[in-house]
Nucleic acid binder design. Structure first.
Lengths: 343, 343
DNA sequence: ATGAAAGCGCTAACAA
DNA sequence: TTGTTAGCGCTTTCAT
């Protein structure tokens, strides 16, 4: 039993009131003051709008104005709590300014990411982009910059890119975390990191790790670093830990992100490995698990709320003031190393 | 140094090839066969499209066809892992059929939810809706049904609603979980649940809890149930646990969702309460934390993947075949109680 | 096998 | 203070 299936248009409002749709449009867009529309007509129109439950058709508005009030958000995986928390903040902030996010997961796949970007920019006509990029090369995003399209990089930045960004100092954070392990007595520490290794956060974490070793007189070699492929974390972690531990080579382990850490923790509990007695262990990305596990896990906490709110703030600035500002914001937020029981 | 700032339109393709835009449109929409367009022209058009990197403007297409290939997804909180996992699946499935999700959080706020629904339907022109509703009354969604608008309820259903739905049998799941505690020797169990209490999942969990008590000869009274307000989980959990435990009334605790469980676990660890020795504890919604915590937490696991994939499948059916099917799909998926160390 | 033209709902320049 | 009109980019009906 459908009724009134067609949504009212601006024309319906105008006709039923015997006024022009210009007028209605003005009311919708709060331009009655600007054009000197009388209080009375404004009220009449507003009442009719409420009565019919009219809402402007965004497709039409987008087509006409070229502005969509949509922002594209691309992250590697929306179900990773690190990203879903950031996204939640972006959603809230965006809404306050009338923007809606279109959220997409890139699956750490460069090609997919590029397709998503094009889809969002050219098909969905988003007004701006917030991007945690998995690309290896800043040049691949040059087409965005060339178009003067508002885009802010978050979490992962691209070296050589002149896009504004919101990130943390991964190098320093990893340095501090590693140093803490060294001070607890570790002599041979392995970093379990993720491939592709060109991702800025990963690269910086590795650098900070290496610097800490060297500063503290523990020589760093590439053997200290194991790359785990994103697509097969669990198996790869198991295999590599087997090798590392059988040869009994390491007394400390640093997981470069929360996914890897969870795989390690499964390994520990399955193999009844005692942490921190047999092996000290820390991770990047603080997640709930780390506060409650046995032992609790020391980790680098990232300011997800700030990352979220700054990323929209920076994008909004681009949206309102254009992308031609001489010095683009590059925001680096502080992290915090939370020392717990694991190492 | 912007270049070529304007995106190519269907007209640009047509003009540069000296053909009509009808033709180009046909090519874009794979209708060349249908209209008997020659191979050669099709190829020519396709090449030009590739050359210019043309992508059809969705706003224009939406305006013209009335179809947006957008689906609205509303959940209480996108950063809750239970929902973000479901959403990830929906995103993937939808993409395979050319749909993009617009994801929104309702914050357990009925009014906000209703506004989001209207915004998505009337402004964004989404083609369908996937809804984990926080409403108290099926009638509030009648306007959706009356319009014949495709909408599927997930996770939470509305009693008396004739919308299709994808959910789990919360009553049975809570029954089984509670029964397990009873079998472990609990005599006085409290259910820590969430308000508003009219939400179907919450109501059913309470019913299953009550039934288990009664079936096993432990009388159920409303005193066994504590409602925690969504907005202030931590404080309220702390206060209520203080009361419950000081009077030393309970030997078992059932957290009705993962948010509440986390607050309880913080309480336990802060107050050095021994679980399960001093208090047995279980939860609804299995999350990573439960597998690694000390002790590990027994919990009801919900099939998030299936919820996600079924919800899009059901919506797709509505999208393709209309909402007039006599018997709407009401899908109930199995849960699994995972017994761990906590109770 | 291809083209012309109308129109989706809206905004904005211009007219009155 | 209000109305007329063109046109955003696309699909689709009707012509040819």
């Amino acid at each position: 039993m459908k009724e009134n299936t067609k949504k009212p248009s601006i024309d319906d409002i105008a006709k039923s009131l015997g006024v022009s749709k210009t007028l209605v449009s003005m009311v919708i867009n709060n331009k009655t003051e600007k054009y000197g529309i009388s209080e009375k007509t404004r009220k009449r129109v507003e009442e009719k709008i409420a009565e019919l439950g009219f809402m402007p058709n965004k497709a039409a508005r987008r087509l006409r104005t070229g502005k969509s009030f949509l922002i594209g958000v691309i992250v590697p995986d929306i179900s990773n709590p690190f990203y879903s928390k950031i996204i939640r903040i972006i959603e809230d902030k965006a809404q306050l300014d009338g923007y809606n996010p279109m959220i997409c997961s890139s699956d750490e796949d460069s090609e997919k990411e590029l397709n998503l970007i094009k889809m969002l920019m050219d098909s969905q006509q988003v007004d701006g982009l917030i991007l945690s990029s998995t690309l290896d090369n800043a040049a691949k995003l040059d087409f965005i910059t060339k178009r003067g399209f508002p885009c802010v990089l978050i979490d992962r930045v691209l070296s050589g890119s002149n896009m504004p960004s919101v990130s943390v100092d991964n190098e320093q954070a990893a340095y501090t975390a590693t140093e803490s392990m060294i001070k607890s007595g570790c002599k041979t520490i392995a970093l379990l990191t993720i491939s592709p290794g060109y991702i800025s956060t990963i690269k910086e974490r590795k650098q900070g790790f290496a610097r800490a070793l060297e500063v503290h007189g523990l020589s760093f070699t590439e053997k200290n670093v194991i790359e785990i492929p994103f697509q097969d974390i669990k198996n790869s972690v198991y295999e590599n830990l087997d090798t590392l531990l059988k040869k009994n080579k390491i007394d400390g382990l640093f997981a470069a992100n929360n996914n890897i850490a969870l795989a390690c923790m499964e390994y520990f509990s399955e193999k009844k490995l005692k942490v921190p007695e047999q092996l000290k262990f820390i991770s990047f990305d603080d997640i709930d698990v780390f506060r409650f596990s046995a032992p609790t896990i020391s980790a680098v906490e990232q300011p997800v709320e700030e990352i979220g709110s700054w990323s929209f703030k920076v994008l909004k600035d681009l949206l309102e003031n254009g992308t031609n500002a001489p010095n683009k914001a590059k925001i680096s937020l502080p992290t915090r190393f939370i020392k717990r029981k694991s190492g």
